[in-house]
Design a protein around this nucleic acid. Structure first.
Lengths: 332, 332
DNA sequence: CTGTTAGCGCCTTCAT
DNA sequence: ATGAAGGCGCTAACAG
């Protein structure tokens, strides 16, 4: 910048003003400096700028992993909003317990970012306190956290929408394959979807048969495993509600391999509307993943702006998407 | 840091030495300062540190989108390596033509990072030149770029593995549903997979029937659309090779809806080994996405270290994964 | 409107 | 082994 100033015959201050669009520079010198800057293809050093300005111009996105659709979509939403605002995103992947421990112990985001967006992450009480003493805005996408802004869906409602659809189709023996929430697959509050399943049944005057609820730790094939278990029952269910689409797709595999007709003999429904759900003709409840990311980013920006103008706790709606894996039960 | 120095009764220089692990400090003062630092839970400002040191401690990851499995997996690989090295990742999503244009015009990564990892991105000649004048290491993951390091698979070979598997199973009328590469879905070199398809057929003494090659611009359902087209042929193929798993899964949907038995009447194969391929029992050729990310990150680190010790052009192997969507043709 | 003067927080010679 | 001083590149008061 010193060079530019010298070549333009002005002071660094003036160049700085031009580059930051600050007022108080004559149109003419402004034009001259701009031309020179373009000529030299000069760009300011954000770090130096931030050092003296105070803010980093970056925000951290913390997620357990980046591979599955949900996290990718949330990230996409965050990025598109931040880019528009000229902010950079630092992505931190905090997968297993070890990484989580060191992350919250070292808090590597300290002094590196102006705000943190935590994506669908089960935060312990201790970790929450760590987050608090970070002293910067924290917003949660796809979950909730005491004392902090968040954007999410209502998991209980989503589950009810799914199960109610099955009930309305005439089903009475409805099973649920539930994912025990772990560090590796934490993307919904532990019990919300199960609660939705239960209340939907109860509201319809149906009883909850504990044998029809399969609880498994997350794995790529847990949906298939869960379905196998259900198929080995004396009286298998006529419909299955999967914790999420990936679980439901796993259930479909077991049914296909077992030669069970879908939806004639067994109906299957999930939650998410994963892109591949469409290709598998899976009935599901859609949740807006990208929007959750985008709204979180907006919330973070608001918080940064100092004026939390809107609501700090956003719940986005979910919608039933009926495809080909659900239908009336065989004997009805 | 000034505070720490004052409280410890030493100079900032000493504190700095301790914090950066530099030699020339007595064990005793070192211990004392460390304790104090922990007490105050003080951390250095990376920005300030970098300002005076010169490097940013960050590297940029540029990808067309973050939603699909491949990109997420590559990102995961990159992140795990960088984290181990204490480097931060700035993620840039450059989706459509407009974003791409502004990205390469403004080069927002300038002065913000020490190196750039470009993920599976079709770079034009002009853009390549822009990248060159960035003056920092650029490595390509999942693709190749003149003058730059890269990590990828051999797409031609992968396609040959897939098609050869079909040929060995006895198929002769083998179709390909090819994704016309676009900005939105650029994750393989335009013609490589098609070439692999062709040479595999030719090597087996089979003729390439142009009617069996469907070229469609990328979309979520292009696999299904392509399959519909193939099914409407006078003599439909007995096997279909999809550009990638998502295309193959789309083909499966069309076959299922049309009541065509798989693999009895038509076999289907893809490339990727997408996590859901397993749930759909899809035969495919696996490519190591996460590894491509990890290796790219290592390459970037090497380049940063100044000593490009290893090979700068890495090609990772792919493997056939046989599942349930391929088998011998009906009449053989 | 423009230039001068201080820092921002840290690292790095060079002395001591 | 430690301290003092200068500078990294830029912005933010103040002056003019």
């Amino acid at each position: 910048m010193a060079d530019v100033a010298a070549l333009a015959g002005v002071s660094k201050a003036t160049v700085s003003r031009v580059l930051s669009g600050a007022p108080g520079v004559s149109e003419e010198t402004r034009r001259r400096i701009k031309a020179l800057v373009k000529d030299l293809s000069y760009v300011v050093s954000p770090d130096a700028s931030r050092l003296s300005r105070g803010s980093t111009g970056r925000i951290a996105v913390v997620m357990p992993h980046t591979t599955s659709w949900f996290y990718g979509a949330v990230l996409a939403g965050v990025l598109s909003v931040l880019r528009a605002e000229g902010l950079d995103a630092l992505v931190y992947q905090v997968a297993d317990g070890t990484e989580s421990r060191t992350f919250f112990a070292d808090l590597p985001v300290q002094r590196r970012v102006d705000a943190v967006i935590v994506v669908a992450f089960p935060v312990t009480e201790h970790e929450r306190r760590q987050l608090d003493l970070l002293g910067m805005p924290v917003v949660v996408a796809g979950g909730a956290l005491e004392h902090h802004a968040h954007v999410r869906i209502d998991d209980t409602t989503a589950a009810r929408q799914a199960v109610t659809h099955l009930i309305r189709s005439g089903h009475e023996r409805i099973a649920m394959i539930n994912a025990a929430v772990t560090r590796e697959w934490p993307y919904a509050p532990p019990a919300d979807r199960l609660d939705g399943y239960r209340t939907a049944l109860e509201d319809a005057g149906l009883t909850v048969d504990p044998r029809l609820v399969v609880d498994l730790p997350w794995s790529g094939t847990m949906g298939a495993d869960g379905m196998d278990r259900l198929l080995s029952l004396d009286r298998p269910p006529t419909a299955v509600f999967g914790f999420c689409d990936e679980v439901a797709l796993g259930a479909l595999r077991s049914l296909r391999r077992a030669g069970v007709s879908v939806p004639r003999t067994v109906s299957v429904i999930g939650i998410d509307d994963h892109p591949l759900a469409e290709l598998c003709d899976l009935t599901t409840v859609r949740q807006p993943a990208e929007q959750q990311g985008a709204r979180s980013a907006h919330l973070a920006l608001d918080l940064l702006g100092g004026a939390p103008t809107g609501e700090l706790h956003v719940t986005l709606p979910t919608h039933l998407v009926i495809r080909a894996t659900t239908g009336p039960p065989e004997d009805s």
